[in-house]
Amino acid sequence: MSDILAGITDILINTLDLDVSPEEVTREASFFHEGLGLDSIDVLELVVSVEERWDVRIDNRELGEEVFVTVGTLADHIAANRTKK
């Protein structure tokens, strides 16, 4: 599970160029608003990176709304669905 968190952190900092330190990317961190401050295009970029890295598809709005709440909800979804180790 810690490798997933590290992977998400890597995507946020190196692909999305978010100006955050790795310590700020906790399971509790919210993706939006007062949290990491992602917007809709960031989320789509994150979706692509997640699929590329773990082969986990998040391809509809309803699922996206469930998964993209906190870093922890995304990590759990990846852990439950991933095929790539």
Binding site: I41, D42, L44, E45, V47, V48, E51, E52
Partner: peptide, 9 residues
Amino acid sequence: SDGAFSSPI
């Protein structure tokens, strides 16, 4: 990626 992935941004 053989057409599978690219950057939405």
